[in-house]
Design a protein around this nucleic acid. Sequence first.
DNA 1: TTACGCCTCCTTTTT
DNA 2: GGAGGCGTAA
Length: 820
Amino acid sequence: MEIRERYLNIKRRLFDKVYSSLNAPQRESVFTTRGPLLILAGAGSGKTTVLVKRIAFIIKYGNAYYSDFVPEGISERDVAKLESALDLTPAEIEPYLSQFAENPCPPYAVLAITFTNKAANEIKHRLAAAFDNEEVANDIWAGTFHSICVRMLRVHAEKIGYGPNFNIYDADDSKRAMLAAMKNLGIDDKTLPIKSVMNTISRAKDALMTPSDFLDEAGREFRLKKIGEVYEEYQKNLRISNALDFDDIIMQTVKLLREHEEVRRYYQNKFKYVCVDEFQDTNVAQFELTNLLIGHYRNLMVVGDDDQSIYKFRGATIENILSFDKTYPDAKVVKLEQNYRSTQNILDAANAVIGVNTNRKGKNLWTSQGEGDKIVLRLSEDQNSEAMYIVDKINEAVAKGEASYRDFAILYRTNAQSNSIERTFAKSGVPYRMLGGIRFNDRKEIRDVVAYLQLINNHSDAERLLRIINEPKRKIGDKTIDAIRAIASEQEISLFEVIKNADKYAALGRSANILLGFAALIEKLTKILEDGCPLDAFVNQVLDMSGYRQMLVSAGEEERDRLENLEEFISGVIEYMKNTEEPTLGGFLEETMLVSDVDKYDESADACVMMTIHSAKGLEFPIVFLPGMEDGLFPGSQTVMSASAEDMEEERRLAYVAITRAKRKLYIIHTRNRMIYGRTSFNPVSRFVSEIPTSLIYKDAPPKRSDSYSSFGTGGFGGYGGSAATSRGSFVSVGTAKTSSSGLGGVGDKVTIGKTFTSPVKQGAGERFSEGDRVSHMTFGEGEILSVKPMGADVLYEIAFEKVGTKKLMATYAKLKKIN
DNA sequence: TTACGCCTCCTTTTT
DNA sequence: GGAGGCGTAA
């Protein structure tokens, strides 16, 4: 063999050995650094590992593996020396590899795009660990599509007609803005339901259609034409508000990159490698954005699983992944089919179900872990006995010591199903956590403070202004608001601009003074912030000067939860300040809008977890229950009726996701009759269950006298076997509905923990304090009581804390301790 | 302005 | 079955 060839051969064998903990296709993925690459990663196939190792590889070795470079004048002896290194262990070989590096890429030239903050953080953490260096992780651009786009837009907003301090509208804000636009146009939301308007406009933006594109396409179709007009008006108002909705964040970035060559060039040169995770969930706009970023390097890696594409209703286009190799004919395609999560029986079931779909690339998951238990199929009488069956099985396994509560997950198709399950769990005392409640950020009082802050950050924001202009009540009624809107709309200026000059508009009449006062309040607060007030103190100022806190305090008992939540919110602000080098209001708001809190449900609590199958994507659990596996529920009746093959395939992919969450054991349950929307329905077992070979299934038939299950009804606790009783009274309280969140924004709590079961422990008012007493508080530290005001049955303390300034706290909730 | 009662509408939701 | 929106009555 020629010496050059031998050199290259040995080099590659050395790399193979160092990376021998990966399987062959995984290594192939890591070593392929140049050009377009599609990784079809089956469920549980080590996708994230590959993603991270590949980025690390690029940073360390660049294109080392496939490079044909051979050093000048290499000798037989050199090659022989290398060859002898092959006998060493992987760890011993590793130091040798750096000599092969070819164009290693600096971390800041790597862009990794994900859909969730959780995934982005995971990548950063694992990279930091791989390099034992936080900086590498901080330098690479790893983030969600939205956060990356916002980062670019902040710099270049002016080029596309926005101010750099633009605000972000979430779904609720944008719904209000669309309703306002419809009102403006005189379109009744009964003839044109807001839900469908929102959905249509959102899909249009996903597909990069501007209002005029949309109107062109709508032609003379009445409904679409109307929606097009709303879209146009809505977009005009967003611009005046200097606000972007979630979809704009992507679409406007695409516009920026398309229309501004110098900006495009800059990022194309900057990002030498681009990676996109969960590629099956991308929409047209996101793919276009990616294409615009990769530039002439064309070093684009996308990872995803066409079989787990379950977000079509949100605009995801499975075609992006299915035809990636047509868009990029030179793309290398790698399939990761070895599964490290589940037993073969579970995988066989999943393979069988997904195999029915035709619109897919085709993969076959396998494992070396053995076949494991059969899948248990259970027919229950109704949703209550279904829930009791689950509780029974859990208690049984826990009693035998086969599993802990945290090993179980109950995954359902619709949130509505959670009711009966939760009730049964609460009654039986099995600890549980449920995902999908109201998010902390969505509570009214939180949205209100945020609205104040957003308005201060960006005076033009119409929705935020409208939200709080009369909150607390300032005697600004609908008529005044309509008048303000009319003036603003006619002159195409912001609402704030009108209010600021209220005395100049006759139409505002007697309200002018109140409006001027409101404008002055906002400007005064803006000034306080500009003068360098720390963020947490500033939020307190906002609450005090606006009268918002006083409004809640005056309401007494009824609103103390809200007051508590506001304190919690401020803790979140403090948390943000701690974690951020240069904390700013804008930065905090951005995080509040872009970082949710699903990321951080407390996995340490020993409790069963309940959630929809959608939210379970990406997670795994030793033992999984799938209740409600019935045609009419899953697949849903809409899908069954619609006869759309595409919709049915999407539903089947969801079933595939559900099955592949299970590591050791899978229970599938269906019922004879079930109450849905107040009606009893008799659903046949899900077609997806019928698609699983019977050889993989064990039918858990109810015992002959099992009618006791249902005859006891919902309330019957003694209806089932002794095992449940063992756990009675063993409830482990895993916290109240409001966990003190530690993450960014600190304001998150989508996780409702044992909410019906945990009765909040009423803290007695306890010791009462008087003026001048020194006290200590769990979060705020030590301070001195400034004043004491009786409030109904409770007492309001004003306390000067050493670290966090003066705060007003209710005695019952402050949990103060006296210091001597 | 608020309160209550009636009517309607129901999938999934990473940002 | 239940939440949320809306209209009417006080």
